[in-house]
Write a protein that binds this DNA or RNA. Structure first.
Lengths: 271, 271
DNA sequence: TGAATAGTGTCTGTGAGACAATATTAT
DNA sequence: ATAATATTGTCTCACAGACACTATTCA
């Protein structure tokens, strides 16, 4: 143990440390609808994330999360905001820091630290066409004690991911994630996706975070569908309505989408 | 919006970005006991954190969190582990990434990004004397709608901190913290402390995280005291015992510390 | 004996899970 | 009429808050 700070500082002199590069990766999440041929049924919903195809080495032709370098004079949070704006043309998007990854060999070119963020978007707001190399992938998540299976599907390509969970810490049920199968994603982005989805799943239970993915007006059925695709399970109607009762405000508008009882539209209620 | 990745990459060429320095700061938390002169009473407990006095510029003679630079060939998580080991001589300490701070002017010398960690220690395990420049400060936290008041006290110095909370995001009750009063702490460490304490307070409710600060054997009264100093409020005995009932295991050992009924010792129960 | 902590019993209210029942629409 | 969704009612069970009560020790 170092008895003085002088000793300590001497041992870990800043000059001993080369500088490194900092990037940011953003897990942009939304909910997609699929057209339904049965006029009675509601359109099916999917949890979806935005990926970009790399056209440069390293990981050429692999998919990755939108991201980029953080400028030397740029606030850390401004980098994901800038990239989000470039990718979606939107500025007021929910953004939350996820985790900072600092593995020595994350990037084959050089030492790169990456601070990842999660962003939630209402897809209806995205009027502009996506860039040619960008694509929304529907994500299906199956999780058990030991593994997380994520299937990403954009209609043309299917990307299967398997992440192994090993108990890292007894007291908080924290897991260490290890990517077991990943042939199509660049860097450690499979890890970021697993971490982000698991954080989102968790936060859905005790916050109003989903409303960041909702349009201004929505039916309770639609809202419930969004909860369901994120949580990956069906919810009981009465219980769901009790939980969200004081988070939403009923309007006089009505949505009538087919051969069933019409539904009132609701708004998120600001306290 | 960039229509091609080529365009995108061109605009954000890595070569445009200077490299920067990465440091790590660790909020080391524990619980301190104060001797009690009344032979009947239990020793009073305090939530406490470890600070180090800087003897170099910048912020010479200010207190700060233990920390240091991350080596170019060092795994990100290894840096806080290394510093913890240097500071405490212990290796198996609970460590969790808190948040990455990247303000442009965090450090007056140069651009430094800092990834902060929180560590929980059982103080009884610290047999070695602390370094001369290090000191445990008892922390008292008062929080209301708008502000967090933290008072740090090591018996010689009292450090008052005031952090303003402004609602950053309606949907998740996320706050932006702004340091309003801080005369004695270096860098943005007041922020790290506020963030860490608030994270800990939160996690205590839904994890077994406190057991990382407990010795192997403890009485339920002691355990309850630790919960109470972290949460900053008294708990009701029967309710507390119900909550922790299946987390602990009763042993045959007994602690007899004074003019009152002796108490059984318990252990943390691994599932 | 009294002050202090250890430990248990139990009532009450809240809230989630589960299931049942009613309402309304387009074809 | 029927299939589908919308919406509400209500029973039960688990559990946290609150308070009361008993047990045990040392000076």
């Amino acid at each position: 143990m170092y008895k003085t700070e002088e000793e300590f500082l001497k041992a870990y002199n800043p000059d001993d440390y080369e500088k490194l590069s900092l990037t940011t990766d953003i897990l942009i999440c939304s909910v997609s609808s699929e057209e339904e041929e049965n006029y009675r049924k509601l359109s099916k919903k999917y949890f979806s994330i935005l990926l970009v195809k790399r056209d440069n080495y390293p990981f050429k032709d692999k998919w990755c999360l939108p991201g980029g370098f953080v400028g030397i004079d740029e606030e850390l949070e401004d980098a994901p905001k800038r990239i989000l704006a470039a990718e979606t043309n939107l500025h007021d998007i929910y953004l939350e820091q996820l985790y900072t990854y600092g593995g020595v060999n994350r990037d084959p070119r050089m030492r790169v630290i990456s601070t990842s963020y999660i962003a939630l978007v209402d897809k209806n707001r995205l009027k502009d066409k996506l860039a040619d190399n960008a694509s929304w992938f529907n994500a299906t998540v199956l999780e058990d004690e030991n593994e997380i299976h994520i299937t990403l599907d954009n209609g043309k390509e299917i990307i299967p991911l398997v992440i192994k969970k090993t108990l890292k810490d007894q007291t908080t049920d924290r897991y260490k994630y290890t990517v077991v199968k990943n042939d199509d994603l660049a860097f450690d982005h499979a890890l970021v996706i697993a971490t982000g989805i698991s954080r989102l799943k968790n936060k859905v239970g005790y916050t109003d975070i989903v409303f960041n993915m909702m349009p201004e007006y929505f039916t309770l059925g639609e809202l419930q569908q969004v909860y369901e695709v994120i949580l990956g399970k069906k919810l009981l109607d009465p219980a769901f309505r009790r939980i969200i009762a004081n988070k939403v405000e009923k309007t006089k508008k009505v949505r009538n989408t087919g051969g069933h009882r019409p539904s009132y539209l609701f708004k998120y209620k600001n306290k």
